[in-house]
Simulated scan of single mutants.
Amino acid sequence: MTLSSIRKVYQGAADRHQMFRLFDRHSQRPHRLGAEANALYAGEWFEITEREHDYMFEILPPLWIRGSMFAMREFLTGSVTSVFFALRIDGVIRHFHGYCDLSDGRSVEDMRLAIIERETRPVRAMTRNERLEHIWSATADAYRDYSDKTTPQYLPGQRVIALYSGAGSAGLKLLDDLTGEEIAIKLPVQLRNLPDAAIAA
């Protein structure tokens, strides 16, 4: 599984428990030490609370501080590390975490601009990809995994989610193959009826 581009992976502001889960959304992936780890994480971002932002600032001395941004000294994988943002959006200071590949000199600024663009849209909406990423982020490890030879339509390394039938039996389905109805069932009630966004974040 290889992801790319800058993408929002959770709708709403994550509390501390959720933030730490989101830091390693791909912990169950096969071949954890493989070379594709940079592409899996680089570009992922989500909103956090001010409290969590300040907590992370105080854990270790940052690698660097640039205005309202700071980077963690410890790298997640390769040249990818956590960058924390305090951004004024529509007159309100909001806080975000993003994984930036520091081997790319533009990655931090590109992330900052992408977050601002996404969060200043006039209509609260979600793309299909954002819905799928939120489902993956919010699902407990026991109900999500990576496909293996026992998975229908086996594709190595693809994400799968447990679905329950009306009879109460569970089966696995590729995350990317969820239907609109299945996506709605998996989303929390407050996110089910949001309009579709035409542009991916």
Rank of each mutant, 00 (worst) to 15 (best):
Y154T: 01
R159S: 04
Q190G: 06
R7Y: 06
H17L: 09
F84A: 08
D177R: 15
T179C: 04
D54F: 08
I116K: 09
I115L: 06
R7H: 10
Y99G: 00
Y143M: 12
R121V: 10
I116M: 04
E47F: 07
T151I: 01
H53E: 05
R16E: 05
G78H: 11
E119L: 15
S5R: 15
T179R: 00
D101L: 05
E119W: 14
I161S: 01
A42F: 10
D54R: 15
A42M: 07
T150I: 03
T77I: 09
E74G: 03
V123K: 07
S107V: 11
A35F: 07
G12D: 03
E74Q: 14
K173G: 04
S27E: 12
L187M: 08
P156N: 04
Y146S: 13
G91D: 14
S4F: 13
E181Q: 12
R128L: 12
T49A: 12
D145T: 06
D196Y: 05
T81K: 06
W136C: 14
Y10T: 00
H26P: 00
Y164P: 09
S5M: 13
G105Q: 11
G91V: 15
A162F: 03
R7T: 00
T151M: 09
R131K: 12
Q190W: 03
K173M: 14
Q28F: 10
E182T: 01
Q158S: 07
E52W: 10
K8A: 12
P30R: 06
W45E: 06
A201C: 14
F23G: 11
R73G: 05
I93S: 13
Y99Q: 02
T139Y: 07
D110V: 08
W45F: 15
E109R: 10
S137Y: 06
M56K: 00
I6P: 03
G67D: 13
E44V: 02
T179D: 01
L175F: 05
S68C: 13
A167Y: 02
G168N: 03
G78I: 05
V80H: 08
F85T: 05
K173E: 11
E133P: 01
H97P: 00
L187T: 07
F75M: 00
M69K: 07
S27G: 00
E181C: 07
H95A: 02
S147F: 02
Q153I: 02
G98E: 08
I59E: 00
G105M: 09
A170F: 15
A39K: 03
A114C: 08
H53R: 12
A162N: 01
E130F: 04
R7F: 04
D141L: 10
E117F: 10
Y41G: 04
R131T: 09
G67F: 05
S165H: 05
V123Y: 09
G168C: 06
L172I: 04
F57L: 13
E117S: 11
T139D: 05
D110R: 12
L175S: 02
S103N: 10
R16W: 13
Y99I: 01
Y154N: 08
I59L: 15
L102W: 07
I116C: 04
E47S: 10
S107W: 00
K173H: 10
